[in-house]
Design a protein around this nucleic acid. Structure first.
Length: 257
DNA sequence: ATGGTCGTTGGACGA
């Protein structure tokens, strides 16, 4: 079972990349973030035509999450406890082949002195409450998506300079660590402990991929129960180098399920 | 390397 995550940065702009990637890699499940379309504009027919069932929740211009699956999708819900429009376009939960998948687009946070940054920190606390209320740490549970935080020094290209920037700030590290302490394992890092693996490269930095100026902010985390079933995890850097790329690239994990 | 770029828009704003 191959499960992937990809911040598409607009599904309409990214359909050529997504269709090629699905065709090349054929993951069982692809979780998307930043689809940036209302549900009536979601390109479901094109996705269904290549063998994937989509579930999605979006809004005009901003946010938006989706799950594409080659298998039956059960127990779909949106937002914290299935409530809330704002959170609904950032959290999509589904059960696929007995795995609980929570796909999130965590608020980016804008800047550490902004209201949006505090909203991001609070959002992690609300997500922790959400996990605590709905799941057991023994469940087959995946938390996947764009977390908008690089957790460790090896997850950014220049940890000394970047410390304190949005995405690599001590307050964010504390907030994320609190969720992790509930019972998550960083499945990618479990398989790839070495530095230099990134999932995001800023459009504004020239030749950022070739120069290694990236961040690892997209993640696949799981309970110990699920991590024990994971056989590999890697980042597919190629789509970041294709024509009209997203500023992110897919992360994949494989499970013996 | 925070700005150089994208995407959604139809001028900025978010990332």
């Amino acid at each position: 079972m191959m499960i992937a995550t990809y911040n598409a940065n607009s599904i309409r702009a990214r359909m050529p990349v997504i269709m090629k990637w699905l065709s090349d890699r054929r993951p069982d499940v692809l979780c998307l973030q930043e689809t940036k379309v209302t549900d009536d504009e979601f390109p479901a027919p094109e996705i269904e035509a290549v063998g994937y069932r989509p579930v999605f929740r979006g809004e005009k211009s901003y946010n938006g999450v989706a799950i594409l699956s080659r298998h039956e999708i059960e127990q779909v819900s949106f937002g914290f406890d299935g409530r809330g429009l704002d959170e609904g376009a950032r959290i999509l939960t589904a059960r696929i082949r007995g795995i609980e998948i929570v796909n999130t687009y965590v608020p980016q946070g804008t800047a550490p002195d902004s209201d949006r940054f505090q909203y991001k920190l609070d959002w992690f606390q609300r997500l922790l409450d959400h996990f605590s209320a709905r799941y057991k740490t023994s469940d087959r549970l995946i938390w996947i998506g764009d977390f908008n935080v690089a957790p460790e020094p090896i997850d950014v290209h220049d940890p000394k300079r970047l410390l304190g920037h949005v995405g690599y700030h001590p307050d964010e590290h504390r907030a994320l660590a609190a969720v992790k302490a509930w019972g998550f394992v960083d499945i990618f890092r479990m398989h790839r402990p070495e530095p230099g693996h990134y999932t995001f490269w800023d459009y504004r930095v020239r030749d950022s991929v070739a120069r290694g100026l990236g961040w690892r902010v997209d993640h696949i985390w799981g309970t110990e129960t699920l991590a024990a079933l994971s056989t590999d995890s890697w980042i597919d850097r190629e789509p970041r180098l294709w024509q009209k790329p997203s500023d992110h690239t897919p992360v994949i994990a494989e499970f013996s399920i």
